[in-house]
Design a protein around this nucleic acid. Structure first.
Lengths: 338, 338
DNA sequence: AGCCTTTGTTTAAACGTTTAACCAAACTTA
DNA sequence: TAAGTTTGGTTAAACGTTTAAACAAAGGCT
């Protein structure tokens, strides 16, 4: 019965050498003769040897596993970041464990615990909307394993961060709408407590000021940015005495909700009201009219996050500190604002 | 410096007992006095003890990790299955490692290899469209760890399978279209070599026969079912002498592509041509008109797959055999076929 | 009292690798 | 040729946990 897996010892027994020699041969240690090295490889192949990752991880004190936490995977942005993370990290010999927080702080905490329990060598995360208490993230830091944040980060954690320039993105959007002749631009934004949404709001405000447009408090609405929120907030905007002539939503889902309401009210997009979303979700180019949005360069963000992680691993002596990598976002103009 | 993690030995040292006693106390072994058990728990808490998962996994010969392979995560179906898998398995003490094949056979093979390398205790997978060579899946079986397939399975592997009744779903769809008065129903299907798509095609054919409708070869088109395929195939259908009065696409993406073409040609949906998709992707209720589709009960599939896995783990003596769990799908009627 | 059982714990080995330290043989070099 | 270096290994301990086996002490039974 070959019920039991072949181990390094089995190979050693066949060749009448020590397990240590086999281990070294397999890892390409210099002090092993070419002859033995090749014999070992041959026998390993023959016996269908598969190294026991757990044993090696235990001995070396690293698991070659990277934990990933995202709010959800069924958004194009996150799944694309993950894909790119996986590609880079696999090449470097790491596997990733993906977990979803579903935007819940509670779930995020248990995710962190299970990842730490699994002895991951590092964590790459995008924070849940709800999260304000950073103690669980501090816990990661206290374990002295790299923590890399992307998209949804937090300066106070003083770790690496990869994301796009939200502030500038708002400027670009407002500028685009102004160039189309819009004079009263509303913003359906996220909650200010989330850094990226706060930045988008700040960018919006500053851009509005810059173009000497009315900075009406009623034109800035905070929400969780779901489709349903988009609908509700759009209805509120329509109830105002002077309707806006453009709406900039900080998420494509909210933009879509707004679009649905506008269509139900027979308000023409883009003729009566121009609309811009954020995130460049695939459906933005599937609906009618197609929705102008912001491309967040997900693949690039994934790649940079992975590379930053590898760099941290390579130089463990360097203490982690706030290190922001900010990419320029790109406005993808579609029919909803043409 | 508390640089080093607390181990079971540290706890033992504090209480002046053996590490074995600590281990047993922590696991709730019956032969440990209530007193020591509680002291151990107290000290463990105090020293912030985190069990070393690798060591225990190595010793016990199981990793408490389950590998998951999906074609992609950015589809609502798969991400929802994953979420439900995660929920059940986490409760049972398992963590999941998610990998994506991107519908590529090559990628799927390396995914299997990395999962096996990571010593997962089992694999839950949905096969890539491309996959016909089953040798890598046989490799999983030869390791004697449970393999559970869902949605995209293969009878020949003789393992557990969870999915919906594709054959019947086609029947239900055709019946629905017939009830709306359709007489010439086209089917934009997947490739026959994939079992589920073959079943949908067979179901379509039998249902057409059953209702004595014309069974025209030109009305059945195979493709990869992407949005682009939907567009192309719809164009082909429109070129035919007698246009169909209904189109049943085996994926929502293809259905959406078809819808776009129809709108470009000013053909009214549902008045001129009725349209049905498959998968109940969120966008089906977001576009105009909303698209009738089939709900695949993703949460239930995830739950059943997880439970089947746990059952296999609990009864390792039982040899795995073909065991199909087939759910009834549910037609969600929307405007595209009303 | 003597034997049996139960309770609570210790001992020691094991899981499969890696690696520091050691060693013998072969080769250099002056 | 003697000392030093290089080559190609071996030995043994270690990573942190689990667990079978052993054992001592206490309690139960006749």
């Amino acid at each position: 019965m070959n019920k039991k897996r072949t181990t390094i010892k089995d190979i050693a027994a066949v060749l009448n050498i020590s397990p240590a020699a086999v281990s070294k041969a397999l890892r390409g240690h210099s002090r092993i003769s070419v002859k033995t090295r090749e014999e070992v490889k041959r026998v390993a192949e023959e016996l269908n040897y598969q190294p026991n990752h757990l044993a090696s991880a235990l001995r070396k004190g690293k698991s070659n596993l990277v934990g990933v936490i995202v709010p959800r995977t069924n958004s194009n942005f996150f799944s694309s970041v993950i894909q790119s993370l996986e590609e880079i990290l696999n090449k470097a010999g790491y596997n990733i464990i993906i977990t979803q927080s579903n935007e819940s702080f509670q779930k995020e905490c248990t995710n962190i615990d299970t990842l730490l329990f699994t002895q991951v060598d590092g964590i790459i995360a995008s924070m849940a909307n709800e999260t304000v208490d950073l103690s669980y993230y501090e816990k990661i830091k206290s374990k002295d394993i790299p923590l890399i944040l992307f998209d949804r980060g937090e300066n106070d954690l003083n770790v690496d961060y990869v994301g796009i320039n939200d502030y500038d993105s708002s400027h670009i959007i407002v500028e685009h709408l102004v160039s189309k002749g819009c004079k009263r631009i509303a913003h359906i934004g996220g909650y200010r407590r989330t850094r990226i949404f706060n930045n988008r709001i700040r960018g919006y405000i500053d851009a509005i000021k810059k173009h000497n447009l009315p900075l009406d408090k009623d034109l800035i609405i905070e929400s969780a940015l779901t489709l349903e929120d988009g609908r509700k907030k759009m209805l509120e905007l329509l109830k105002q005495e002077i309707r806006p002539d453009a709406v900039y939503a900080a998420s494509d889902y909210a933009a879509l909700g707004a679009l649905q309401v506008l269509q139900e009210y027979n308000i023409s997009v883009p003729n009566d009201i121009r609309l811009v979303g954020f995130g460049n979700e695939p459906f933005t180019s599937l609906v009618t009219p197609t929705i102008t949005s912001v491309n967040q360069h997900s693949e690039k963000i994934g790649r940079l996050a992975a590379e930053t992680f590898l760099e941290r691993i390579a130089t463990p002596e360097v203490k982690q500190k706030l290190n922001k990598i900010i990419l320029d976002a790109e406005l993808v103009v579609r029919n909803s604002s043409k």
